[in-house]
Amino acid sequence: MNIIVLMRMVPDVVEELEVAPDGKALDMEFLRMVLSETDDHALEEAVLLKEHFGGTITALAIDAPEIDDALYAALAKGADRAVKIVDAEPGLSARAAAALFADAIKELGPADLILTGAQAIDDLDGLVAPLVSHTLGMPYLGTVTQVIPDLAKRTATIIREYPGGVRGEFDVPLPAVLGIQAAEKPPRYVPVAKVRAAMKTQKLETLSVQTAADAGPGLVEVIEMAKPAATGRAQMLEGEPEDIAGKLCEVLAARGLL
């Protein structure tokens, strides 16, 4: 079974996020990028599938700061190839990213499964996976939590999770594009020595695809990006417990709650 995992870097929210001077995007200068958490789950699901059913994994990513670290970690975890799409503009829209991925997948050759994160913090609509599936003419399922392939029948049983603890089971013909919500196990730890060994012994492949420019910046225009303004403040009651209790009663009474 051949699996392609699509990996994207997203802003690391551990760092302070600043809005760029044009007020329409994040300030890239102070940003650190990190592998999207759900893409890490997609990679884990791929590694679990390879462990159970054999096959190969290709980690496919769009060039971004620190992407090499993420790709070498993917190789150390069990990916067979790591391919980086170069020459892309920074800050791609979901449409543009999907177009790049779809073209790169055509170049890479046939795959049985294309896995990626169901959502990303900069793609809450989870558009990338369905757009890729549309371009490639493959079926798509999102918010996937388990994949059980039947290679003889060229199908897979897909488990999806719904709110309220409801679980859905689907059959999908392969090849298919799946948006992974969570892998069956949390993404594994890869010892740093293994990543360092991968850096010494394995190579990242690069791929330049041309058509992405046609996909344009997307059909949605950003009018303004700003930090949310504080709308209210918490009121702290201070003093001895009796005083606090008294003040609390006053506050509640003033609001007609007592």
Partner: peptide
């Protein structure tokens, strides 16, 4: 088979941010 999650996070944080609690290195 599975590393305790808390330890895994601490190690990953130390690699990425230089401290186990995952605070910004800046």
């Amino acid at each position: 088979p599975e590393m305790p999650a808390e330890l895994q996070r601490a190690l990953q944080n130390t690699l990425r941010y230089g401290n186990p609690m995952g605070e910004s290195s800046r």
